[in-house]
Design a protein around this nucleic acid. Structure first.
Lengths: 204, 204
DNA sequence: TGACAATGTTACCGATCGGTACGTATACCT
DNA sequence: AGGTATACGTACCGATCGGTAACATTGTCA
């Protein structure tokens, strides 16, 4: 007899192929951490809303800090997915890539309950150097800076590093302003301002 | 007899004219809240480092949240002092005012242990609408936006609101990047990028 | 000198924090 | 069927959270 090694359609929902506790925990943590902040959420609330118990959490994650770091590593993956979507949509045209990315960022910032960038927020919540969450956040931002500078170079900007950094400032400003001002805030103009800055930097 | 109503030089230090507990508490809270974050600091540590006890804190401040709000109100005052210093240094020249302000911001962001803007950080730490700390922070940012847009108008920018918002994005980006990257980070270029953006917005 | 108000101190509260020891059930492979 | 490893739940830990009741001390007036 050939045993089914993947999914058995006869199983009742939520019984077999049980959504691994670790995945449910990470999913709930991801949502709560992003929306309400990492420090604001206790592990009890996470396990309660995940429908599991605390030892289940601590068998999959060494500590709350590491759970937060896992959340950010997942966030990092999804971030670069979004970023590369914009890049891939305009091959060889970094200016259009930036514009496409920022148009989407600007739109997201106008949604209610927008809470900014999970990476940026985590770095604000954990200023101590070496904190697991901050380490992930810093690495993400370093890489973002590197890529923005590279794109500015590819655009042929006179001072590419300055332009790359300027774009980073606008992006971070959009993340923060988005959650500070809500809809109608300054973040909606991030794409236009970035394009103006690029324009000015190329003519130099 | 004329009684001395202010300071009596015969008093021993730290005995009479005792530095009002409320002031010492606020001073310590201000330092700790800014450097390590509001949520990260407990009231016990504040009173311990202020050399007082907890009831002293709660007689002067209704709650920790209100103490945080008081810290931010003081921060607000000092912020506008710095802002107006740059403004007053260049009467009638908003572009030079912005530049002067941002040069100073850029320098501050390069200092070790720079922790960004207390207002911005507080808003990240407390996303819940109506939180006392967040209320102060939002009011400060609204006013900053208003003034930046007014200055952009005074510069004669074609789309003054967009320029004002662009400057706000750069500023917020500098606050965040300053604490994310430390010295050598993108925030050091905030003044130059702002000036480039202004240049581009005026020629439009 | 004595009353009053303000300020400081000791000791404590229930709730929640992150984290764990230990017993129980379940799935899988032989 | 039986053995075994894995996953899960009950109950609990000390520490710390924000906040308070009741008492002692002080300075300032009449």
């Amino acid at each position: 007899m050939s045993r089914m090694k993947s999914i058995d359609p006869s199983i009742k929902p939520g019984e077999a192929t049980p959504p691994r506790a670790a995945e449910r925990i990470l999913g709930v943590a991801r949502d709560l951490f992003y929306r309400r902040g990492i420090r604001a959420i206790g592990v009890d609330e996470i396990v309660r809303r995940a429908g599991v118990t605390k030892p289940s959490l601590y068998r999959s994650f060494p500590s709350k800090d590491e759970l937060a770091a896992s959340y950010l590593r997942q966030y990092d993956l999804e971030f670069w997915e979004r970023f590369d979507e914009a890049v891939d949509a305009h091959p060889g045209d970094p200016r259009a890539q930036i514009k496409a990315f920022l148009i989407r960022v600007g739109k997201r910032t106008q949604k209610t309950d927008y809470r900014g960038c999970g990476m940026t927020n985590a770095a604000v919540e954990y200023p101590e150097r070496g904190h697991p969450a901050r380490v992930v956040s810093e690495a993400n931002k370093q890489e973002l800076r590197r890529r923005l500078r590279a794109m500015a170079t590819a655009m042929g900007a006179g001072d590419a590093d300055t332009l790359g950094d300027g774009l980073l400032l606008l992006i971070e400003g959009a993340y923060i302003s988005g959650q500070l001002f809500g809809a109608g805030g300054p973040a909606q103009s991030v794409a236009r301002n970035a394009d103006l800055l690029i324009e000015a930097s190329l003519k130099k």
